[in-house]
């Protein structure tokens, strides 16, 4: 084991956790984003789920738009053959 290797390891052992801690501290509290708040005020609140459009699951986009979800049928393997909704 060289002294250089030991110094590099110790530097990494200090720098990596310090960087990670700094990143965690920086994002510890949610910052109120003026643009996002303004947008939601103007449109009256849009979006309440992980989906980015209505095509797969309108409920996943916003349950205020539709409370049911076609993806509830997802495990059915022959859904399209049966003509079931969701595609």
């Amino acid at each position: 084991m060289t002294a250089r290797g030991r110094a590099l390891l110790l530097a990494a052992a200090v720098a990596l956790p310090a960087t990670a801690a700094a990143m965690l501290t920086a994002s510890a509290s949610p910052a109120i984003h003026g643009g996002r708040a303004s947008f939601q005020r103007e449109v009256g609140g849009l979006g309440l789920g992980p989906a980015v459009d209505l095509s797969r699951c309108a409920c996943g986009f916003d349950p205020r738009v539709e409370s049911g979800c076609a993806l509830g049928l997802e495990p059915v393997p022959v859904r399209s053959a049966l003509g079931l909704p969701g595609e």
């Binding site: 949610p30 984003h33 996002r36 708040a37 939601q40 005020r41 449109v43 009256g44 609140g45 849009l46 979006g47 309440l48 789920g49 992980p50 205020r64 738009v65 539709e66 409370s67 049911g68």
Partner: peptide, 26 residues
Amino acid sequence: GLLDQVEESIDFGADLHVTASRFGRP
């Protein structure tokens, strides 16, 4: 991060949402 945006959508959105249904569908 997504939950933060959901909370903003509720907080800054309208107080009441009025929708309708027939046959239990929108």
